[in-house]
Simulated assay, not measured.
Amino acid sequence: MSPVSGPVRAPEAGGAAGGRIRVARKEAGLTQQGLASAVEVSRQTIIAMETGDYAPSVYLAIKVARALGAPVEELWG
């Protein structure tokens, strides 16, 4: 059996975590590119997280939360 290709859909309906990430990013005064640079991923990765098309690894989720000054549970909980 081959692995699933394509984006990994976030577990919450409607990408609720994505909305919280977007709000926290804007409150932190960061652009998508600014957050991407801070956590060392592409801007497209940030876009995918904000639209709910990508669920990050625990490691990346922690990096994003730290960059935004928010607890991981607040963003993805």
Rank of each mutant, 00 (worst) to 15 (best):
S57E: 02
K63N: 03
A48D: 13
E27K: 13
A28G: 04
R22F: 05
A13C: 06
T51G: 08
P11Y: 02
E40M: 08
M49D: 06
G15I: 00
R9E: 09
G14H: 10
M1F: 11
A24Y: 00
R66G: 05
A28F: 03
K26Y: 11
M49F: 14
E40D: 09
A55D: 15
A13L: 04
K26C: 07
A55F: 03
A48L: 12
G18C: 09
S5A: 15
L60I: 06
Y59W: 13
S42G: 08
P71A: 10
V39W: 04
G19T: 11
I21L: 15
W76K: 05
I46W: 06
A28E: 00
A55R: 09
M49A: 08
A48P: 02
P71D: 09
P11K: 10
P7W: 12
L68D: 01
Q44K: 14
L75G: 07
E74V: 09
A67I: 03
P7A: 09
A61M: 05
I47V: 11
A65N: 04
V23Y: 02
P3F: 06
V72T: 08
A61T: 01
A36D: 01
V4R: 15
V41E: 11
P71G: 03
E27F: 06
E73T: 15
T45I: 02
R43F: 07
V58F: 08
G77M: 05
L75Q: 03
P56I: 08
L75V: 04
S2Y: 13
G19E: 04
T45R: 15
R20I: 07
S5Q: 15
G19W: 05
L68C: 02
Q44T: 12
A13D: 15
G14R: 07
K26S: 07
Q33M: 14
M49L: 12
R66I: 02
Y59N: 14
Q32T: 05
T31G: 10
T51I: 11
I62N: 13
L35H: 01
E50R: 14
G77R: 14
T31N: 08
I46L: 05
V58E: 02
R20Y: 05
S5H: 11
S5W: 14
A67V: 08
L30R: 15
G18S: 03
R43L: 01
A38F: 07
V4C: 12
R66N: 12
G6A: 04
Q44A: 01
A10F: 06
V41Q: 11
R25Q: 10
Y54K: 12
W76N: 00
